[in-house]
Design a protein around this nucleic acid. Structure first.
Lengths: 192, 192
DNA sequence: TGACAGTTACCGTCCGGCCGGTATGTAGCG
DNA sequence: CGCTACATACCGGCCGGACGGTAACTGTCA
């Protein structure tokens, strides 16, 4: 039977806090993302919150770890579906970014994360550490690192564009970006 | 002769404030970018600062206008050097981003701007208004809008990567990105 | 099994500083 | 005199974090 104890397993509480923190980030945005707001949403006191995450930065680190793990998992799972081994990770990185629906929640969370990056650049290293698990620079891989880098830059640019609405990228255009991955695609940006 | 008057031309003072504000952003970063810091750097009282820019958001708007105008000017000047008229703006956008040396100051300023975007999304519209002056969607332009968009996404992704050090992009890789603009370039990301 | 100690999860309150913004005064200029 | 470019002094809210507790769980030894 479930013990109605007030005391919970610590990692379970941690996970719940991160979950609710992402909700707060999604709903309140970067300005509303405060420790008080997270504590209130989690129905846990601020003291308890700071017990599990000794600082706001620590909480953000937890969120980044969560998001980073999810993203790496998505990309590697997508890559595993690619029959061609070489360069699959870079292709999967772009495919996931292009295909994943960007919800309003994602946008808000992304903005909070980006604000955290800008305010505390050390957090970027943590994100980078996750992204480095998606290897694209296999020396045996005949697919050029240049092209792999290009795909990632496109994906990152698209992500930022979605966050801020810089470009209205239609579904057709998203598909067109994926056409880069079809064999022998030629850039026409210079050939009228 | 210079009049040692305590009273200056207002737009001159505004320009000086923006100039110093950019310095503060470059040196202090997003957390250190406060009205007091800007006022101190400008050797102007905080009251005077808020006289010219009635809020911190207004000051950021001024900075964004400055940076946006500079960037538009760079891109359009670069585009004017392109003999091929079609798609020149998109190509110039990428070329400027790839070629312009990214100094430490640029990085710090970029982070401050990005933080401002994330904290106050309305500022993004102002930046977007400047970028929209670089037209890439001329209906008479036979260069595909898809490819033009791709070039801008690459440039934006590279900018963000430079800001946060996400990728170590060597000079050779930067050159390789420009090779996209040579006629008939073929993506090899799928052809081992 | 029970008593006692040490540890850990959690609470609620309060503080202190930072920082955006205001209110009020003043000097130069037309 | 009125307008504008300033200065000085000050306010007040927000928010991260500290702190002193308390309750629950985990030994451990008799």
């Amino acid at each position: 039977m479930d013990t109605p104890s007030r005391r919970r397993a610590p990692d379970q509480t941690r996970a719940e806090i991160i979950d609710k923190a992402l909700e707060v980030a999604a709903e309140l945005g970067a300005t509303g993302f405060t420790l008080d707001a997270v504590a209130a949403r989690t129905r846990v006191s601020k003291g308890a919150l700071l017990h599990h995450f000794p600082s706001k930065t620590a909480l953000l680190e937890g969120m980044i770890d969560h998001l980073g793990a999810m993203h790496v998992e998505s990309v590697l799972a997508e890559a595993a579906r690619d029959p061609e081994p070489y360069g699959r990770n870079a292709r999967a990185y772009l495919r996931v970014t292009v295909n994943e629906p960007v919800t309003l929640q994602d946008v808000s969370i992304g903005r909070v994360v980006l604000a955290a990056f800008a305010l505390d650049p050390s957090l970027v290293l943590r994100w980078k550490a996750w992204m480095d698990r998606i290897k694209i620079d296999d020396p045996n891989d005949p697919v050029g690192a240049d092209d792999a880098l290009m795909l990632r830059l496109i994906a990152d640019g698209l992500w930022m564009s979605d966050l801020f609405g810089l470009h209205q990228v239609s579904d057709e255009q998203r598909k067109a970006l994926l056409s880069l991955l079809t064999p022998g695609h030629t850039i026409t940006a210079n050939e009228p």
